[in-house]
Amino acid sequence: MTKRKPPPKINADTKAFWDGCRERELRFQKCEDCGHLRHPPAFLCPHCLSSRTVMVKASGRGRVYSYAVYHVAFDPAFQEDLPYIVALVDLEEGPRIVSNLVGCDPGAAACGMAVEVAWDDGEEGLCLPKFRPAGA
């Protein structure tokens, strides 16, 4: 039997983000006082320390800040995915997100490449926000 992949860590801070993913929407926290957009979600704004936040919807478009190609499955559940790409994606709204680059040959990946969100149906109705080359 294939080992199950680790589920996302959902807590009071991150619940709104993962609730958005279920509806295939990327949602980020925006500080209601200074307007700073942030990810990952947190209780306080790292710029002005305000705790007042609203969730805003992101376009899902961004650029690869950096990426790493896994050739070793540190968790056996990822064995069949090798080689796979973990990427840091700068969303056009500002926040940076850890995700996967999919639909892209590892040799074709590049820092700065334009990407767009590609929803990956996970288990129990959960959708994972992954990214693919823009327009692919």
Binding site: P7, S66, A73, D75, Y84, V98
Partner: peptide
């Protein structure tokens, strides 16, 4: 090491090697 970035394990991102690999790749850019 597995606990180092447990938040990102959902994307298969684990431990120190992956994190430093992201840093090194950005440096290459």
């Amino acid at each position: 090491l597995a606990g180092l970035n447990a938040e990102d394990a959902v994307f298969g991102h684990f431990g120190a090697t992956g994190g430093y690999a992201l840093a090194a790749r950005r440096a290459m850019h």
